[in-house]
Nucleic acid binder design. Sequence first.
DNA 1: GTAATAGTGTCTGTGAGACAGTATCGT
DNA 2: ACGATACTGTCTCACAGACACTATTAC
Lengths: 229, 229
Amino acid sequence: MVSPAEDIRVAVDLIVLTLREDALSVLLVQRDDEPHRGAWALPGGFVELQEDLDEAAYRVLADEASLGSGAVHLEQVRTFGAPHRDPRGRVISVAFMALGADLPDPRRGDDVADARWWAIDELAAIDLAFDHADVLACSIERARAKLEYTTLAVTFLPQEFTISQLRGVYESVWGTTLDAGNFHRKATRTEGFLLDLEKHAAPTGGRPARLYAAGPGTSLVPPLLRSGD
Amino acid sequence: MVSPAEDIRVAVDLIVLTLREDALSVLLVQRDDEPHRGAWALPGGFVELQEDLDEAAYRVLADEASLGSGAVHLEQVRTFGAPHRDPRGRVISVAFMALGADLPDPRRGDDVADARWWAIDELAAIDLAFDHADVLACSIERARAKLEYTTLAVTFLPQEFTISQLRGVYESVWGTTLDAGNFHRKATRTEGFLLDLEKHAAPTGGRPARLYAAGPGTSLVPPLLRSGD
DNA sequence: GTAATAGTGTCTGTGAGACAGTATCGT
DNA sequence: ACGATACTGTCTCACAGACACTATTAC
């Protein structure tokens, strides 16, 4: 069977999300080549022949963001393949979302003029390269939705955390405020969500908060809905 | 920029789901070529150079299932790209789920020995080609989950339908039984789900059922959870 | 009338949201 | 003492599930 698609190339694009000072932020790189030279874009790269899709994503994560695979939760979002999304030719891109706690400032990679974290709210002002604004919007909506019915929020936090910090994740990602008391009850009473470490954090001007770690569960039943919006 | 991925080919695979005699069923084709000659597989095909991914999916749908784009709801599921999933070489496949009402029996296409509907429950007995069992399982789980929080169930029904038929969709796809009275109340009182046509179906041995059409809403708030399972 | 299917009412338990109250720290 | 943060109790409303009841057809 002869392939009619020999000139299609396959890439992965990464939407690396973290919380920086309570703001949901994404890692962008400034392009050093045409097309879109000087524009900000999602980190990405072509898939190699002997490499699975998520291996490619991990490789790009290491190359362009100096992040090891242990630091993040990686998840496929969607594949984007409009014929002219890349002016160089036909490129189909598999978008991966990477969520991590307190990720470091990026070091500069190849083909890249600069790399930095952007708060989501800052991005209304700038134009992203290619269709990356769509890809990003799709991923952020996915992340927001998955906080509702999975335990994904803990991936934004260090190994040990307090309920207040966990609530802060929900508030920052959703852009809402939540009732502290009701959230506390809901989080602590949901089976499998949290592991009580039976110790306390250093106090920060009030009663010291109990420390928790991520529990064994991955889904939240019943879900934690952002109903009030 | 030289691509290191010139030999990767991109395909779409289709998971065409419908209800046949109250059984969730999928369209499979029997391969007429190596590899996996004689095995049953999901319909699929390579993406052409000037064609968007969903255009490719619609084309395959027309070629291998004689289904027009109006008849189905098409939705991207996930992309599968393990290096040796296809023994002929590196093939990355974007999986699309197509849901439709009462779809016709397929006519035979090219490269295909046979094509028919299989009830999901029959598939435990047979081995699908490539990684298509994984692809199918992933899609069915997606469909089951989306019935909970979207109005997707109506895509399995004709334009005009009764509440009983709608409940039948949920029962068939989830493999559960639901309380008729509670379901009726829930479905009719969820804003945007249904459009009351203010007429009745021909009776079938009992009180004639009111007819409804799909409403304008796409998401179900609050969701219709398969909690009892 | 009976059987069958459609649709409503009613009760009960669970849980979310509002918000008041208690606990434990620093100063 | 007081302010600040962490938790807990209580009330109310909405809704899911169980299930009894009424409605409208065919026979």
